[in-house]
Design a protein around this nucleic acid. Structure first.
Length: 391
DNA sequence: TCTGGGGTCCTAGGACCC
DNA sequence: TCTGGGGTCCTAGGACCC
């Protein structure tokens, strides 16, 4: 039996969500003028997280530096992101989608798939999708695109057609007319590098890719990726809509300096900050980590990453920080300016078994106490923030 | 104009074990 | 003494996604 999958994608999510809040507060609707959501605008290294349709029409794009966008449009309205509010908006639209089908997979904060196979027919799918889209607009105040297809890939490709506030179908029998004429870059998983490799070999459209023999494609991108691209270009994808939320496999944090830094004290301060953040996050989710990795980025954007295994999984900030410091001394000469420093942990477990050793480092007790106070402080900060938001 | 932050998966080489 | 083949783990790097 053919499947019916919807992909729901919020149009310019962060920008729309900020606009909803501002309109509720009686302010002008920033969706109607060139506007963007970004990090700290005074930081010259900030980039654009979301742009309004009028901004996009001027050529302003997501991931572009704010300074560049300001040159394009000096009157650009810039707003700071509000994560707590975004999470509320996300939950709101996911809830509505879940009412249409419980077989729902959240793909990111602003996208989800629902399996509608048991909830509508190919004939009624467009009308149902339109109802879903309109319900979100009426109840929550922002627009979405709904893509309909016989699998997740096609649904996702369809939701990317004309925006905003639109419903599109991409059934298997429409692949040839609606998908094959598109450029390879429009295919999911084809990024900049793969596009370059494909076009260098004369493969320009998704249709070219679909008709390409596996032998030559494997030579270009490797066997595994070639298999996937070949399937996807032909509109095939049998992955199910995963309803269970997967646990994180890694947690990381990074800091990009407003100017490249070379003073080891500055670098260490940043490493300390990210270690606090990462360790706090894993404690909050009751994780312990067995792998610590540290990475640095130079001004030419090259990245060096070092990792190591711990004898025992840990969630102690000081233990993670010490490993990261050691890795930093291995990776960095202490002189060359750095653009960014980051820290990650992986091999996460919920295993709380701890080898009790009579010879356990007595410092660990102090470290744990420090972490406990840190966590309490963070929680207090969060409570205060929530209170301020309400009043 | 000068490029954030947070993730996932894949590959390839080397070490080590049987 | 020399050789091979398979499996697993680790590491570093790269590509992609939102």
């Amino acid at each position: 039996m053919p499947r019916i999958i919807f992909h729901i994608d919020v149009n310019s999510a962060f920008l729309s969500w900020s606009a909803v809040k501002m309109v509720q507060a009686g302010e002008a609707d920033i969706r109607l003028v060139p506007s963007v959501v970004s990090g700290e605008p005074s930081d010259r290294r900030s980039i654009i997280t979301a742009a309004s349709m009028p901004a996009k029409k001027l050529g302003i794009k997501t991931a572009q530096p704010v300074s560049m966008a300001l040159r394009t449009c000096p009157s650009l309205v810039i707003v700071r992101g509000d994560w707590t509010w975004y999470k509320q908006c996300s939950e709101g639209f996911i809830d509505i989608c879940r009412h249409y089908s419980p077989v729902l997979q959240q793909f990111s904060i602003d996208e989800c798939f629902i399996d509608m196979s048991d909830c509508c027919t190919p004939e009624t799918a467009v009308a149902v999708a339109a109802r879903l889209k309109d319900e979100i607009k009426t109840r929550l105040g922002f627009t979405v695109n709904v893509g309909i297809g016989s699998n997740k890939l096609l649904a996702k490709m369809a939701s990317d057609f004309e925006k905003p506030d639109k419903v599109h179908t991409l059934w298997s029998d429409e692949v040839e007319t609606k998908m094959w004429p598109l450029g390879v870059r429009d295919l999911l998983w084809v990024g900049k590098k793969t596009e370059e490799r494909l076009t260098a070999n004369g493969i320009r459209t998704i249709g070219d890719l679909a008709r390409l023999g596996m032998g030559s494609l494997t030579q270009m991108v490797g066997r595994k990726f070639a298999e996937q691209l070949h399937e996807n270009a032909n509109g095939r994808d049998d992955s199910p809509v995963h309803t269970e939320t997967e646990e994180a496999k890694s947690v990381s944090a990074e800091r990009t300096f407003s100017q490249d830094l070379s003073d080891p004290r500055d670098i260490d301060r940043a490493l300390f900050n990210v270690a606090c953040i990462v360790a706090h996050r894993i404690r909050r989710h009751h994780f312990r980590a067995s792998t610590v990795s540290m990475f640095i980025k130079y001004k030419d954007f090259s990245v060096v990453q070092k990792q190591c295994q711990l004898e025992q999984p840990t969630d102690i900030t000081a233990v993670i920080l010490n490993e990261a410091r050691r890795l930093l001394t291995e990776a960095w000469d202490g002189v060359t300016p750095l653009r960014q420093v980051g820290l990650g942990v992986s091999k996460l477990t919920h295993d709380y078994y701890e080898q009790m050793s009579l010879f356990e480092d007595p410092k660990l007790g102090f470290y744990r106490e420090w972490d406990r106070k840190y966590d309490a402080q963070r929680e207090e900060d969060a409570r205060l923030q929530a209170y301020e938001r309400k009043s």
